[in-house]
């Protein structure tokens, strides 16, 4: 197992694949957050959570 893993570490194709996975994850997050329908209104509402903490009881 460890021999296999060491072999994997020296495989430059896998390194490139790892980089693509990272970049892909970043792009998916970006699209997900910015381009999904209705996302803007939802996130604006979420951003107001600290400002809507309820009414203080005297």
């Amino acid at each position: 197992m460890s021999g296999f893993l060491r072999q994997v570490y020296t495989d430059t194709d896998l390194t490139a694949a790892g980089l693509m996975i990272f970049f892909g994850f970043f792009m998916v997050t970006l699209v997900w957050v910015y381009l999904r329908k209705g996302a803007k209104a939802h996130y604006e509402a979420m951003g107001r959570i600290p400002l809507n903490e309820g009414d203080v009881c005297e």
Binding site: V33, Y34, A39, K40, Y43, E44, M46, G47, R48, P50, L51
Partner: peptide
């Protein structure tokens, strides 16, 4: 007293 600039 204002929301964070961009929640996204």
């Amino acid at each position: 007293n204002r929301p964070v600039y961009s929640y996204r």
